[in-house]
Amino acid sequence: MTRYILGRFAQALGVLWAAYTVTFAVLYLLPSDPIALQLGAAGIETDKLTPAELHTAKARFGLDRPILEQYFSDLWGFLRGDLGESIAKQQSVASLIGDRLAPTLSLSLAAAVVALLAGTALAYLASYVRWRPARLVLTRLPSFGASFPQFFIALVLIQFLSFNLGLLPATGIRGWKSLVMPTITISILVASQLAAVLMRSFDDTLSQPYIVTARAKGLSRAAVQWHHGLRNALLPATTILGVLVGLTVTSSIIAETVFSRNGIGKLAQEAVLAQDVPVVLAIVTLAAAIFVVVNLVVDLLYPLLDPRIVQGQRKEVTI
């Protein structure tokens, strides 16, 4: 058991390191001039500088070092919690992210809870209903929900709930009311993805022999699905939890941009717009870290949730 846990920890760290390295490579090795790019972000136009000025400007942001040296010093910084310095905002990335953590955290949590409940309820209903037209509508709902661009959903919500009915504030981060529309925006997509996976899982579970046995013993269909179906159908879906959380986090980029919420998603959008490389690197790594942690927790809990399964042999599902 200890060996399994240690192995999973090592694997998680490995994936995180690889994700960081891939992102670093994308940002620094792609055929563009990262130095001009980053100095441009700081408002310095490279072609107007004398060589000496260019050198001081590069040294100011540590861009004059060889690429490998930059990589290792950045990596060492990340390990110690030092995420570097934003070039556009001349501020440490860690404090930038820290300042903006609260709105994103509350939005992501709310969206995750709503999506989890809505997605599960939809899949549960779709596999319980026997009337064919209703069943058809319910089973098609996930691909319907995933077809609408998130920003479009957000704009429709603003149009109807804010401008037409005047129920909710269109922008801002004050009070629970400002949380409603961004939460709906994000959770429609996430709930759709979850429901699609859960529906297949319910189909598999409800055709198992123990379901037939339970029915044969005289339990009603409703009781069988509630007591025997639900928990077993939820199990394989835990493996996509990491992907869903990742989706929630990235959706906040769009939701926060549309609803003008000053969170990390908005920070990401601003950073890309300003081509602020250190901030982008830190945010991508942060998202990868969240994914890795969620997956690690799921992996460690899985043997407890489903004792039938030998450690490390859980069933894989894909979206």
């Binding site: 995180l16 980029i253 991508v284």
Partner: peptide, 8 residues
């Protein structure tokens, strides 16, 4: 897979 598509 660990890096969400939109962020990559």
């Amino acid at each position: 897979l660990a890096i969400p598509v939109l962020l990559l």
